[in-house]
Amino acid sequence: MIPRIGDVPLRGQPYRLRPGAYAVLERDGRILLTFQSAPIPEYQLPGGGIDPGESPLPALHREVYEETGWHIARPRRMGVFRRFVYMPDYDIFAEKICHVYRARPVLRHGPPLEPGHSAAWLPLDRAIAAVGNDGDREFLIRLGLNAG
């Protein structure tokens, strides 16, 4: 069973299943996050939806590049969680299945390709406080616990 992190689903509300791949990216004691300015400004782990017919790892590489401009190497699975959210940019209620990987950012190729996104490097403690959802926060906390 995949653990739920965050809000419980609304009773009677149908949710569309949305699998995604997300990255915890650490370099020199800082975490690479994406800042999404709209529809709700928030910091997030870089990543996003897995397209139909796509596997999680190619999706992870594609999404990190689109949202940060960085290429990554050596992704290793940290875990998975699910969360129930309304996605205003798609006007859907979604059950997001979030596959989380730890990877190494290796080369910046330019600014993010995705409109409204910017890359931000934050110290781990600030990244934990800044991310906009409890699932992202949980995996950043795990990173800190494993580092000590």
Rank of each mutant, 00 (worst) to 15 (best):
residue 69 G to Q: 00
residue 85 V to N: 01
residue 96 K to I: 01
residue 108 R to C: 08
residue 109 H to L: 04
residue 25 L to T: 04
residue 26 E to P: 06
residue 103 A to P: 11
residue 104 R to Q: 11
residue 36 Q to R: 12
residue 74 R to K: 10
residue 94 A to F: 11
residue 95 E to W: 07
residue 66 E to F: 05
residue 30 R to G: 05
residue 28 D to M: 15
residue 39 P to E: 03
residue 64 V to L: 14
residue 34 T to S: 13
residue 67 E to Y: 05
residue 107 L to R: 09
residue 79 G to K: 06
residue 95 E to C: 06
residue 101 Y to R: 04
residue 79 G to R: 07
residue 93 F to P: 03
residue 93 F to K: 08
residue 51 D to E: 10
residue 62 R to L: 11
residue 111 P to Q: 09
residue 106 V to C: 03
residue 77 R to Y: 15
residue 64 V to S: 14
residue 75 P to S: 00
residue 79 G to M: 01
residue 40 I to K: 14
residue 60 L to I: 00
residue 63 E to R: 09
residue 49 G to I: 10
residue 103 A to Y: 08
residue 42 E to C: 07
residue 60 L to S: 02
residue 46 P to I: 03
residue 64 V to N: 03
residue 110 G to I: 08
residue 106 V to F: 08
residue 52 P to M: 14
residue 28 D to L: 10
residue 26 E to L: 07
residue 90 Y to D: 08
residue 81 F to H: 08
residue 78 M to L: 15
residue 97 I to E: 14
residue 77 R to N: 04
residue 42 E to Y: 15
residue 60 L to G: 01
residue 108 R to K: 03
residue 96 K to A: 04
residue 41 P to F: 02
residue 30 R to S: 06
residue 46 P to M: 03
residue 48 G to Y: 12
residue 56 P to A: 00
residue 91 D to Y: 06
residue 69 G to R: 06
residue 46 P to S: 02
residue 76 R to C: 11
residue 76 R to H: 14
residue 88 P to F: 15
residue 39 P to T: 09
residue 88 P to N: 15
residue 93 F to G: 09
residue 100 V to H: 03
residue 87 M to N: 15
residue 55 S to W: 05
residue 95 E to Y: 01
residue 107 L to H: 03
residue 83 R to P: 10
residue 25 L to R: 10
residue 34 T to C: 10
residue 85 V to S: 01
residue 58 P to M: 11
residue 99 H to A: 11
residue 89 D to I: 13
residue 100 V to S: 01
residue 47 G to C: 14
residue 34 T to I: 05
residue 97 I to D: 12
residue 108 R to D: 02
residue 62 R to H: 01
residue 70 W to F: 02
residue 71 H to T: 14
residue 63 E to M: 04
residue 24 V to D: 14
residue 109 H to E: 05
residue 69 G to V: 04
residue 84 F to S: 00
residue 102 R to N: 10
residue 84 F to E: 03
residue 48 G to R: 02
residue 61 H to Y: 10
residue 76 R to V: 15
residue 67 E to K: 05
residue 89 D to C: 12
residue 29 G to I: 15
residue 85 V to P: 01
residue 50 I to Y: 13
residue 62 R to D: 09
residue 80 V to Q: 00
residue 25 L to I: 13
residue 85 V to T: 00
residue 110 G to C: 08
residue 35 F to G: 13
residue 93 F to R: 09
residue 49 G to Q: 08
residue 102 R to G: 09
